[in-house]
Amino acid sequence: MKLEEIQAPLNLKLVTKNTNTDREIRGGYASDLLSWVMAHAKENDLWITIQSHQNIVAVASLLNLAAIIIAENANIDDNTIEKAEQENIPIYSSDKSTYEICGILYNLLSKESG
């Protein structure tokens, strides 16, 4: 499934400019502990977190994650957005909780893989 296709069902707001949203999602990963994410998330995962420190961009970039969703409208630093634009990592904001986003995303991706 393409990143662009999940924006509407998850009611996501794209907060970065000129980042690549035309990419395929393999799966999802949810955690706020960056050391844990670095060890466990996989390439092309969509990462859901409330952690918005700019280090999230480095982690996403390192693992080549598809995008980051910041749940529950958690505040995002300007530094983080700026860095994400430089590194071409899309960041979305959502008013839904991590739990809700994961549930919807899981269903969408499961349906696709049949």
């Binding site: 502990l33 960056l34 952690q51 420190h53 280090n55 480095a58």
Partner: peptide
């Protein structure tokens, strides 16, 4: 430490 440490929470020291 894994918890409440800058490396645990943020992956590395910015």
């Amino acid at each position: 430490r894994r918890h409440f440490s800058i490396i645990g929470q943020l992956g590395f020291i910015p």
